[in-house]
Computed example of a mutant assay.
Amino acid sequence: MSESSFQSSRLTTLTGLLLPLSDRYLLLPNVAVAELIDYQDSTPEEGAPEWFLGPISWRQLTLPLLSFEAACGGRTKVGGRARIVVLNALGGRNELKFIALLTQGIPRSCKLDSQLSYVDVPLTELELAAVQVGETVARVPDLIGLEQWLVDAGLMHPAA
């Protein structure tokens, strides 16, 4: 392998995480995930949107726990393998550094390359694309859009 083809293949390979939800898989870049933690119950405030499951505690912070399924019009399920994925907020807001997302198991690492195949399936407002990852069709979530939903609903909690 020549040096230029090695560099080319090295630059087009990324590691992602497949997050199992109750009705779909999400594909996230590794850098989006801060930590996987055990599920903890939370109670939303009266009148909160269905996708807001309430505040949780993480590293002495209070984070908003969200259901991606409910945000996309589905139902929130808390299965026996439920976990919480703490995501790094990508929107650059000082008051929102992390958000928590309900997942139905342990995320799986996967290698992605520039040959990623897009899948033509209906997408919701918070999904940017659907791609084939091995045998799995995964949705690419609009994480900045999800953060904006938190802002619009007045559900941001200070990061400090």
Rank of each mutant, 00 (worst) to 15 (best):
R75V: 11
Y25L: 14
S109C: 04
Q104I: 06
M156C: 14
G105H: 03
V86T: 09
Y39C: 05
G16P: 00
S9V: 06
A129P: 01
E35A: 04
Y39H: 06
I99F: 00
G154E: 14
H157D: 07
L26P: 07
L63A: 10
I56Q: 04
K111G: 01
L21Q: 13
L126D: 13
C72L: 13
G47N: 15
E50A: 04
G145Q: 08
G73Q: 09
G80W: 14
Y118F: 10
S5C: 09
I37C: 11
L14G: 11
S2P: 15
G54A: 03
P64V: 08
E127N: 11
R139I: 01
L123I: 05
S57E: 07
L101P: 14
Q40G: 06
S109N: 08
L96P: 00
A32I: 02
D38T: 13
L66G: 06
S67W: 12
G145N: 06
R93D: 02
S9I: 01
F68I: 12
F6Q: 05
P55T: 14
L26M: 07
G79N: 10
S5W: 15
A153P: 15
G47T: 13
V119L: 09
D41M: 05
R108G: 11
V133I: 09
M1A: 12
L112H: 02
S9F: 01
A159K: 08
D142W: 13
S4V: 06
G73V: 09
L17R: 07
L19A: 10
P55Y: 14
I106K: 04
R59I: 08
P158Y: 14
L11G: 09
Q60C: 08
E147W: 01
A138M: 02
I84M: 13
Q104V: 12
A153L: 13
V86Y: 09
N30Y: 08
Y39G: 03
I106M: 11
I37T: 07
G154F: 15
D142F: 10
L21E: 12
R10D: 00
S2T: 15
T62N: 14
V85N: 05
R93S: 03
T76L: 07
S9C: 05
V137Y: 03
L63M: 15
N94V: 05
F52W: 11
V85A: 12
L28N: 10
Y39F: 15
D23G: 11
T124Y: 01
L112R: 06
E125Q: 06
P122V: 04
Y25V: 00
Q132E: 06
G145C: 11
